[in-house]
Amino acid sequence: MSAERTAFLAELKAGESGRILGVAGGHGALGRLMALGFVRGREVKVIRNDSLGPVITALGDSRVAVGRGLAWKVRLSRNTRSASRPGKGVSS
């Protein structure tokens, strides 16, 4: 099961990355998220994702903590496990 597949940012585990497909809506906090660069086509990498608290992400040279509620509004296509982290790596 290494094919690309759609997921929400909140579902990605630490070390995983994906390409943003879309951000639902565009106002309020979502607007802020977009202004930070969360737009279609951008690569996001998850640095930390626990069941509690925000998802810590890397977006280019920026590091952004995205609240759990918002992380369920960012749709992306999950990249296959790449060479960046060999082995099964981090679990949360």
């Binding site: 802020r32 998220l33 930070l36 925000p54 952004v64 995205v66 509620g69």
Partner: peptide
């Protein structure tokens, strides 16, 4: 009401 969503840049 809901608490506002959390978005925060983590500076280096």
């Amino acid at each position: 009401g809901e608490s506002s969503d959390f978005v925060l840049e983590l500076p280096p």
